[in-house]
Structure formats: structure tokens, C-alpha cells
Amino acid sequence: MAVNDGLSIGALADRTGLAVSAIRYYEAQGLIRPWRNAGGQRRFERADLRRLSFVMIAQQFGFTLPQIKAELDRLPGGRTPNKVDWAQISAGFKAALDQRIDTMTKLRERLDSCIGCGCLSLDSCALYNPADKAADRGQGPRYLMGDTPEG
């Protein structure tokens, strides 16, 4: 295959391990943008291998497709993304992952005391949430979100 012939959807599926239907779905979501050859067949750039790999990894980290698309939309359109382009995207994801790691660490450390207690604004935990004070601070797991019982 010549370099400018692009990859068929089957070749892209073989290389990524994704089903053809998944690739079509990602195309419909605007995550990849194939072109048509002279015969009208869908063709993909080799850079789409990296884009789809990024999609799969980002999903494993819990990012949504709209979040992933927003990041991919920052990549250059007229050329293959380079290391600098990917580093810029990586920086934003690192910050989000650091925040998630911090939240998960707090959850792990407080899991025994948080299950069923006031951090979810329940009134059943007199130790951490007397009189359901956490509810006054808003919705959700207030103490896991950074609020403290004292403050």
C-alpha cells in the first residue's frame, strides 16, 4: 500500500483491536475524520491509530467522549500531530488525573468511616455529621470533595 493510500477501516480495526462498528461510532462522534479515495472507500490517516489509542486510554481513565473530543479538536488539522501537540493535551489530562487521584486517595483513606455517614449529607452519622451539617454545604459527598467536618 502506498503511503498516501490511507488505511482501510478493516486495517484500522486490526491495528487498534476495535470493532469496525466502534470505529464508525467514533467517526460519527467526530473523534476521527476519514476521507474517501477515488473509489469512494473510507480511508484513515496513520495518525488515526494514535487518536483511537488515545480515545481508548482516556476512556479507561474515566474521561467522557465529549471531553476527549474537546482535547482532540486542539490537535492540528492539516498535519500529523507531533510530540509537542500530544504533550499539550497530556498536560491538561495530567491535571485532571491528579485531581482524581487526590479524590480517590481521600476515599481510600476514609472509606470505612464514610460509607453510610454524613459525607453524603445523611443524618445517620453523629460522629462526622451531627445534625446533618454537611447538607448545608451543598449536594454530594461534601467531605470527600474537600469540606471538613470542622469548617
Rank of each mutant, 00 (worst) to 15 (best):
A2H: 12
L144Y: 00
T148H: 14
L127G: 09
D85M: 04
V20E: 02
I89A: 10
D14N: 12
I101C: 11
V3T: 14
S124Y: 05
G138D: 03
F61R: 11
I68T: 05
Y25K: 09
N4D: 15
L75R: 01
Y143K: 08
L120V: 11
D136N: 14
G138K: 09
K69V: 06
G77V: 09
A28P: 00
E109M: 08
R51V: 07
R110I: 04
D73I: 03
R42V: 00
A70Q: 10
G151H: 14
N4K: 14
M104W: 12
A131C: 10
S53C: 12
S124F: 07
L127S: 15
R79L: 08
Q99S: 14
D98G: 06
R110D: 10
P130L: 05
A135S: 13
P130C: 03
D123Y: 05
A70W: 08
T105A: 10
L65G: 05
V55L: 00
D147I: 07
M104C: 12
Y128G: 08
F93P: 02
T103Y: 15
G6H: 00
V3K: 13
R15N: 06
R137V: 10
Y25W: 11
N129K: 01
R46P: 12
G118L: 01
A135F: 03
Q29G: 00
K106Y: 06
P76N: 02
Q139E: 15
R33H: 14
P76D: 01
I89C: 09
D5Q: 14
L65Y: 01
R142E: 07
L97I: 14
Y128I: 09
V84M: 11
E109Q: 11
M56F: 07
G62N: 03
A134T: 04
I57V: 15
D112R: 07
L72Q: 03
G118H: 03
A13T: 05
R24D: 01
L31Y: 04
A58I: 06
E45V: 12
V55M: 00
D102R: 11
D73P: 03
A126F: 05
R46T: 12
I57W: 12
A126K: 13
F44N: 02
S90A: 13
V84A: 15
D102H: 11
G17V: 04
D132N: 15
S53L: 12
I23D: 04
C117T: 05
K133M: 13
L144K: 02
L107M: 15
I89R: 01
A22C: 06
R51G: 00
G10K: 10
P141T: 05
S124R: 09
D48C: 11
L12N: 05
G151L: 13
D147Q: 14
S113D: 11
G138Q: 05
T80N: 10
G17E: 06
N37T: 06
G118T: 03
D5P: 05
G78E: 13
S8H: 07
L122E: 01
I23C: 07
F61G: 04
E109C: 07
A13Q: 03
D123K: 08
